[in-house]
Amino acid sequence: MSSPTKTHPLVQGEVGPGCAKVDPIVVADAVKRQFGGLTAVDVAHLEIPRGAITALIGPNGAGKTTFFNLLTGFDKPNEGTWSFEGSSLAGVPAYKVARRGMVRTFQLTKSLGRLTVLQNMLLGATGQRGERFGSAFWSFLWRKQENENTVRADDLLARFKLDAKREDFAASLSGGQRKLLEMARALMSKPTLVMLDEPMAGVNPALTQSLLDHVLGLKADGMSVLFVEHDMHMVRHISDWVIVMAEGKVVAEGPPESIMQDQAVVDAYLGAHHDTDLGTLTNQQVRQIEQEAAQELDEVQATREEDKA
């Protein structure tokens, strides 16, 4: 077992669960959320680094989504405080959290079905004059801003390969396309921290690479990214930092290279074969799989003959 590196450029002091960051964008303290007897989230201390891509991983039910909900004001914790860019967010309603530049997507995609793709995008833009009740009726007050937003929306749609769907109802999109739309829509608000809950779920391999590029592009544009993902390929390739949750607690954190080797993480989550890349099976593995398949086939045939007899 290799011991993790003890220092890291993102970290102040020693690397470990709950370690202090040089430049944290989110700091959470003693955040606890219980559902009846179940403690879904129990984070003692956690800092999310600024300007980096941070992955939040952990087994099903570890509390990742619940933690997202708490940070973004969609759920209220039993106790705890947290701050974003230095100012406290505890008790701040979800829409104000979003306005401060902390924008999220949902694990179960929330596309607005009976709005077109373009309308979905435009809804993401902030500070719209036409969204105020008093000025809504007078289109000359907001037409210019609307046109500017439309240009930006079209640009994003093209980047996410949704431009052909511009005028379609979002309900007519496939599951993966909805994921893309939701992410593109979140970017319309020019956020400082983008929080993605399983952005890769349901996105086909051909788009995977471009999605990874998009996320990397966010960092290049100066945004910080926090994402939940079960796809280790994504975690390994684009994240600068990995936080591991299990049973509501942060059990490990560190750079991806060392976290994948961490025995606690392997035990809790990854399993022994997490290094095997399914894309590149060795000849030996192929032979083994074929053998096993043939064996199973034999067994099936044997039982069938027994049934007949």
């Binding site: 829409y95 979003a98 929330k110 596309s111 009976r114």
Partner: peptide, 18 residues
């Protein structure tokens, strides 16, 4: 557009700062 969005899914609209 915002109220139609609320009709579809109010949490989504909330997450966009409305």
């Amino acid at each position: 557009r915002v109220v139609k969005g609320i009709r579809e899914d109010e949490d989504a609209v909330r997450s966009l700062g409305k």
